[in-house]
Design a protein around this nucleic acid. Sequence first.
DNA 1: CAGTGGTCTAGACCACGAA
DNA 2: TCGTGGTCTAGACCACTGT
Lengths: 242, 242
Amino acid sequence: MRSRRHTIADDLRQQITSGRIQPSERLPSEADLADRYKVSTLTLRHALAVLQGEGLVEKIHGKGNFVRRPLRKTMYVGGWGILDPWTAAEPALRVTVSSNTVQAPAHLATLMKVSVGSPLAEFTCLSYEGESLHGLARIYLPRDLAPAGLLDDSASRQAAARFAQLCPLQTAVRETVCARPPKTDEASALRLAAASVVLSITRIATDSTGRIVEAALLTFPGDRIDAVFTTHPMTDERQARA
Amino acid sequence: MRSRRHTIADDLRQQITSGRIQPSERLPSEADLADRYKVSTLTLRHALAVLQGEGLVEKIHGKGNFVRRPLRKTMYVGGWGILDPWTAAEPALRVTVSSNTVQAPAHLATLMKVSVGSPLAEFTCLSYEGESLHGLARIYLPRDLAPAGLLDDSASRQAAARFAQLCPLQTAVRETVCARPPKTDEASALRLAAASVVLSITRIATDSTGRIVEAALLTFPGDRIDAVFTTHPMTDERQARA
DNA sequence: CAGTGGTCTAGACCACGAA
DNA sequence: TCGTGGTCTAGACCACTGT
């Protein structure tokens, strides 16, 4: 016997995928739905949790449950952090950047091979598609490398085109990709269920002297992103070096 | 005010990470823990759900809640498919390879830019760490490019060292990474829950003429793998080409 | 303020696993 | 059979959002 939460989830899913409930539309309140299905609110909430896990529904505390727009997968292009060449051209994509100075906490100090407490410039980049956030980046540079007039218009446009790459292109980049549950702040910022998964990319840029000039912590909802990386054949010269 | 489920989760997490509760040990029953913390069983279950989401605890219906052994993350190195330089050296890592010939179904034909029904050599690679499978690869080559005596010892050893890369190294490689729920066959092969997540890597190798010489579909349990990709500064010559 | 979702209780009953 | 986790109820109260 299928549990009640699942039969309810099936019914609501059918209404959503068939278009009877439109994207970005609000569902009836949980109390109303619980009445309609003759279940307790807790059971109904479990049904909604199923749909939330599938990415069909988004819960907003104090407002309601909303049908998510069908997924448009965006693409992260590895190497120099270009985000989504297709939608980047669309006006619907906005990237906001804010900056800050912090003292390196332990995990960042390790990552960037600087001593704990070193001054770092921190940039928080949020990428929106329409109203909904679909990418989150925190970027750290050694304070002395951070450009002074960074937050002008041209820099914002640049960050929108290549997702939040602040360092020059002539650097070696190492990107580590993993899938993991969102941290609580990420879950609330990206409006994800705690049980969902994000694709986390840690990008380290190194200049020709080996100094780490940028560390970027990128987080994307796991079901909305593909990351693509290309490797070219080595030149004989470079192969000899390795 | 931190919610009760979180204070309980914090307390249990501390007991686990400090070693007061050992890996693979059973926790007291939910009823007992609910008594001890003076909360309802539902609240206690929510606390355990937090730890479960963090991968610290595994629930087994009818048996209890168990502390999971800490995960040993393996690493996939992008570019030419080297798997896990650290554990690759360990005797515990085994890779088995079996081969087959198939006619390209639609999705593979699209991926490899050949016509539907073209003969392809299919290689299925399973990577074990001790008893448990931790990687699964299906690799396709145009039939005429598949080496004849592939499945001898040296090829198997080679596949173990560089995860299932069958084509020559002098190729351009494009790897697409996404997180998604496992397909049913993957879930059973990797012993994953249907609700879990795999890291899926699609690797396409192209020779200098632009022909696709290999397509690899790699699947790893999402919580046991990191994938790392490196990009080197372009030479002036290559930059001019792009 | 009213309306929404979030947390919590104190029970009941069901489904699974091992003896 | 017994002890375990899984589902569910009918309510209470809290926290967030908009008016």
